[in-house]
Design a protein around this nucleic acid. Structure first.
Length: 389
DNA sequence: AAGCCGGGGGT
DNA sequence: ACCCCAGGCTT
């Protein structure tokens, strides 16, 4: 028994479990992955739900299970089709690892999710949280599944002051959860934590008077709910500046480039992007703050650079609009992109030679066959709005 | 332990 | 503008 649980007798723990689970039986959300205990369905949902809200996940989940109804289907899937099914969800390595794990399951475990948590944890993309989630929900094993919800709820229940931003803190919460989880309904218990965290025990405005377990909550008793959880601040997203080049040829096609197979937005398609140093008069500013009123010589120099870069990298020399027609901003978890988007029209039919291997001319009617990340979606929408074709 | 990896919604 | 979200992998 941990120190945090000193004042919780075995009777109190059972009382807590009964109270909590009867609330869950009445109030649990109806969700597609709760229809049964199929480990595959649960697994896919858990991967999608990493850092992603339930409402966002549901339509993706339904589509995904329709496309890939079994682990074998997932293992056999074409990677482009797979990535397309994930388009817009973010953290795209999740879906690559999902397929790697499916192949692992087919080759090493006869196509069935192993029941041993130690084996589940060997699968790509499955860490401590997801191991606990699958083990408890699909196989009724009393393993905690500690996510952000659990750390918030538990930190309030027992007034735990450890910094939940630090990876090492997870063990403290796992230990407490191991002590209080209901061994007869571990899956329900873990999911009750999720539902409570999303509906009642929310980050900034918990509705403690409606909480089914407030009588057990130490911070509710003391009125310290808003002091928990303790979480150190993340660093701010770093700004990066690009020129975006939307280039159209005389067949109405646009130049697209496939990104590297590793790193940010791996294997996804965008219009050409040229990184720029936005240093004007020794000041680092977003291009977005300059384009509208930058001095003419700067404007001219930017266009010359763009012309040169595009010619060198893509062997084309379009006629450019002199100024960017839109400034796209896109915020990632760790980066902030500012893209000044230029439009160039290719007049001569010299667009079929020397194009780099990862580039293609694509007609807009075929864009739906390519996976576009957020910034690309924004550039294209801005183009459509501006030029209405 | 820290950094990398998306996107959307709430406040 | 900042925080949060059913985290995991790499270095």
């Amino acid at each position: 028994m941990t120190n945090e649980l000193n004042n919780w007798s075995k009777t109190k723990i059972k009382d807590f479990q009964a109270t909590f689970l009867s609330w869950y039986d009445l109030e649990k959300r109806t969700l597609p992955w709760r229809e049964n205990n199929d480990p595959y369905r649960i697994w896919v949902s858990e991967i999608m739900l990493q850092q992603t809200r339930v409402d966002t996940v549901i339509p993706y989940y339904l589509n995904f299970m329709n496309l890939f109804p079994t682990i074998q289907d997932l293992a056999d899937a074409d990677e482009d089709v797979l990535l397309k099914a994930w388009e817009g969800l973010g953290y795209y390595s999740r879906v690559r690892n999902l397929q790697k794990a499916a192949i692992q399951i087919v080759t090493e475990f006869n196509g069935e999710m192993p029941k041993d948590p130690a084996l589940i944890a060997t699968l790509k993309g499955i860490g401590p949280y997801t191991t606990g989630a699958i083990s408890s929900m699909a196989f009724q094993l009393p393993i905690p599944a500690v996510d952000g919800n659990v750390m918030r709820v538990v930190s309030r229940l027992f007034e735990i002051s450890e910094d939940i931003a630090k990876p090492a803190s997870r063990k403290t919460f796992e230990k407490i959860m191991t002590d209080i989880i209901d061994p007869h309904k571990p899956g329900d218990f873990n999911q009750a934590m999720m539902d409570l965290g999303s509906s009642t025990c929310t980050p900034t405005t918990p509705t403690c008077n409606l909480c089914p377990i407030n009588e057990f909550c130490q911070s509710f008793e003391k009125g310290t709910m808003l002091q928990y959880p303790v979480k150190s601040k993340k660093k701010k997203a770093k700004p990066v500046y690009y020129i975006g080049a939307i280039i159209k040829n005389n067949r109405g096609e646009f130049l697209l480039e496939k990104r590297e197979e590793k790193g940010l937005l791996a294997n996804m398609w965008t219009f050409p992007l040229v990184e720029e140093e936005p240093i004007i008069e020794n000041t680092l500013l977003p291009l977005g703050g300059l384009t509208s009123k930058q001095p003419e010589d700067i404007e001219k120099q930017t266009l010359e650079n763009l012309t040169k870069e595009i010619k060198e990298n893509y062997q084309v020399e379009p006629v450019w609009l002199k100024k960017p027609f839109v400034e796209v901003k896109h915020i990632f978890s760790h980066l902030k992109w500012f893209i000044a988007v230029y439009f160039g029209q290719l007049i001569e039919d010299n667009d079929h030679e020397e194009l780099p291997k990862n580039c293609k001319w694509v007609h807009p009617s075929e864009f739906d066959q390519y996976t576009f990340p957020g910034p690309q979606q924004k550039m294209w929408q801005a183009y459509l709005t501006k030029f209405k074709d």
